[in-house]
Design a protein around this nucleic acid. Structure first.
Lengths: 336, 336
DNA sequence: CCTACCGGTTGCAACGTTGCATGCCACGTT
DNA sequence: AACGTGGCATGCAACGTTGCAACCGGTAGG
C-alpha cells in the first residue's frame, strides 16, 4: 500500500491538514512549508486515495459511457474522442454495454455504478423517453442522439432530419430516381432512425419520388448485406441505396459488388456516420459526417454545466454535420 | 443523495451492522429480521455506497483497460468482449488511451487511477519490458500482446510467429513469389510486429524466397495506403502484400483497387486481426483471426488469479488463432 | 494599550462501510 | 442449578480524506 497523508505529515513534522492543503494546492501554505512537505511527498511517493476523496467529497472523477456496443466503429470513434476530451475535466471514462436492450439499459441507469459516477453519457436504444426521465435520484444523464424526452433531459445530436434530407437530395441530383432507404428499426423506440427516415421522405416528396423503405433488425454489416440481398432478389430495380449507418452501407456494398453490380455506375450506395472504414472502402463511401469531436465536447461540457447548475433547464445541443461525397455515389453519366 | 445503512437501520429498528449483514447476504441473520430489513431497503431504495466500500475494503470493482486507442477496430472489438466478460467478475471497465506514447503509458501506469483500480489490462506500445516491470507498488498488471518482460509479468497473446508463418505459407501455396510485408515499426519497442516479421521471414526462408519489408509509422489505414502507394510507385512488382494489421491491409487494398489492380488476380492482400471490416471488404480480406473472446477471458481470469495469489509465478497465456482465408488471396489461376 | 484582522496552521468530525470482538438469549447437557 | 453451545445481534474502530471552526503570533488601526 502506498503512503497516506498521516505518514507524510508525521515525516514532515506538520499536521495532516497542512499536507492536504499542499496536495490540493489551493489553501494558504507558507512557501517553505509547501516545499518541505512536497519533498516528503516525493520521497514517499504519496498518491491521494481516490476512494477516500470520493467518499468525503462525493466526486468520483468517473463518467459512465453507456452504449449499445463499444465494438461498433461509430461508438468506438466517439468513445475515443470522449476519452481524450474527458481529461480536460479530470474525468476517466467507464464503459458499459447494453446491446441496445431496454432491461439492460434500465439496469445500468439505476444500478450501483450509476450512483458512483459523476455522470452518465448514454446512447439509448431500447428505453423510451418516459423510462429515461422516470429514474431514481442519481448522477446526471446526458443523452446522445435525438430523444424526444419532452425537453426533460439534456441531449446532444446532429440534425438528423436535415442531414438525411441533404444526402437524399444529393442522390437525386446525381440522377437517381429509385432510392431505397435501409435502416428503419420498427421494433426500437430509438428516435434516430425515424428522424433519418423523415428527412429521406421529405427530400423524396420534394422531388415527387416514391419512398422505398427496408427495415432491418440491427445496424450491422450483416444486416445491410441481408437487406441488399433481399432487394436484389426481389428485383426491386433500385438505382440508389441510402443506409442509415455506414456499417449497413458497407454490408450492402459488399453484397452489391459480390453480385456483380458496378458501384456507382449501376447503383449508388450511401451511408451515415463517417466511420473510417467507409473512407477506405472500395469504392469509398458517401456519407453524412457528424462532427464527432464536437459531439464529445458538447456532451462533456453539458455534463459539467449540469453538475454546477443542477436545476438549470435541460438543453438540446445540435452539433454540425457535413455531407461527405465520395466515389460510391458519383454521377453515372460522368463515368460512362 | 440516496439512503445509507444508518437510515435503513433506524427505520427497521436494528443496528447498522445487521443491515450490512443483510445487504452482503452472508452472515447469520434471522429470516424474519432479514425480511423486515429487506423491506425497508426496498422502501428507501437503498444502494450500497461504492466509495465507502472501496475505502473500507480496498476493492473498487474497476479494471483499467489501457490501450493505444479505443477507436481502432481491433481494440474496440476486444474492449467489447472484455466489457461483456468483466461482468462475471463484477468488474466494470475503465478505458484509458495512450496513443502508443511511452510517456503517456508510464503516466497511466503510475498515476492515481492505477492505484484505485483492482487491476490493469494493458496493450503497451511504447514502454520497454524494463519500464513495465520497474513500476511502483500498485494494482496488478496484465499485458496484452507479446512482451518479452523476462517472464516477470503476466501476459496474454496468440503465437504471432506461428500465425505469421502460417499466413505467409498460405500466400506461397497460392503461387505468390514476391511477397511484401507491411507493418514493421522500427521506432517502437513493441514486440508484436517483430514477431510477425519473424514468422514471415521463416516461411519465406523455407521456400527460398527473399523478404521485402516495408516499415510504417502507425498501423492505420492511411499508413497501409501510403505503403502501397510507395510500393507501386517503386515498381516493386510484388504479387502479394502481407500487412501486420487489417487496417493496414484495408488501406493497401483501397489504393491497389483505386490504381486499377485486380485483387486477388494481380495482387493478393492479407491482413492480421480479423476485424469485421475485413470480412466485408471488397474483396473480403484474408487474415489471421485471434480468438478475441478467449483473449478477453484469459486476461480477466489471469487478473482474478493474480489478485488471489499475489506472488504466484507470472504466466504467459497463449490463445488460439485461425487462418481465415477469403477472396483477397484466392489463387489467381483458379480465377482466370 | 486594546482590538481587529490576517496569514498560516491545526484538531475535530464526518463521509458509509465492514472486520472484529463481544453481548445476549434460549436451549440442551451435566 | 450451573454450564456450555450455537444462533443472532450489536458497538467500536478504522479505511484516508477534507470542511469547518478555531487557534496562534504578529501587525495595523482606533
Amino acid at each position: 500500500m502506498s503512503a497516506n497523508l498521516r505518514q507524510v505529515a508525521e515525516r514532515a513534522g506538520v499536521s495532516v491538514r497542512t499536507v492536504s492543503n499542499v496536495v490540493s494546492g489551493f489553501a494558504l501554505v507558507a512557501p517553505e512549508t509547501r516545499e518541505r512537505v512536497q519533498r516528503v511527498i516525493d520521497e514517499l511517493g504519496y498518491r491521494p486515495n481516490a476512494a477516500a476523496r470520493h467518499l468525503r467529497g462525493g466526486r468520483s472523477g468517473l463518467v459512465a459511457l453507456v452504449l449499445p456496443e463499444i465494438a461498433s466503429p461509430y461508438f468506438g470513434e466517439l468513445a475515443g474522442h470522449l476519452a481524450d476530451r474527458a481529461e480536460a475535466y479530470a474525468w476517466t471514462l467507464l464503459v458499459q454495454q447494453t446491446g441496445g436492450d431496454a432491461d439492460r439499459e434500465r439496469e445500468l441507469l439505476d444500478g450501483v455504478r450509476a450512483q458512483t459516477v459523476d455522470g452518465l453519457i448514454m446512447s439509448p436504444w431500447g428505453l423510451s423517453p418516459g423510462d429515461l426521465t422516470r429514474r431514481p435520484d442519481s448522477a446526471p444523464l446526458i443523452l446522445l442522439g435525438e430523444q424526444d424526452a419532452g425537453g426533460l433531459l439534456d441531449h446532444v445530436a446532429i440534425d438528423n432530419v436535415a442531414a438525411a434530407a441533404e444526402l437524399t437530395r444529393h442522390l437525386i441530383e446525381t440522377g437517381r430516381r429509385r432510392i431505397a432507404a435501409v435502416g428503419l428499426q420498427p421494433h426500437l423506440v430509438n428516435g434516430t432512425a425515424a428522424r433519418r427516415a423523415e428527412g429521406y421522405r421529405q427530400a423524396l416528396a420534394e422531388a415527387g419520388l416514391p419512398p422505398l423503405e427496408i427495415p432491418v433488425d440491427r445496424l450491422h454489416r450483416p444486416d445491410g448485406a441481408a437487406a441488399m440481398t433481399r432487394l436484389l432478389d426481389a428485383n426491386a430495380e433500385v438505382d440508389a441505396v441510402f443506409c442509415f449507418s455506414d456499417q449497413l452501407a458497407l454490408g450492402a456494398l459488399h453484397v452489391a459488388v459480390a453480385r456483380g453490380l458496378r458501384v456507382p455506375t449501376d447503383l449508388a450506395v450511401a451511408g451515415f456516420d463517417d466511420i473510417e472504414d467507409g473512407r477506405f472502402a472500395n469504392p469509398a463511401l458517401t456519407t453524412i459526417a457528424p462532427d464527432k469531436p464536437a459531439i464529445a465536447d458538447a456532451a462533456l461540457k453539458c455534463l459539467a454545466d449540469r453538475l454546477t447548475h443542477r436545476d438549470a433547464a435541460p438543453r438540446r445541443l445540435v452539433v454540425p454535420h457535413r455531407l461527405e461525397i465520395r466515389a460510391s455515389t458519383e454521377t453515372p453519366s460522368s463515368i460512362g
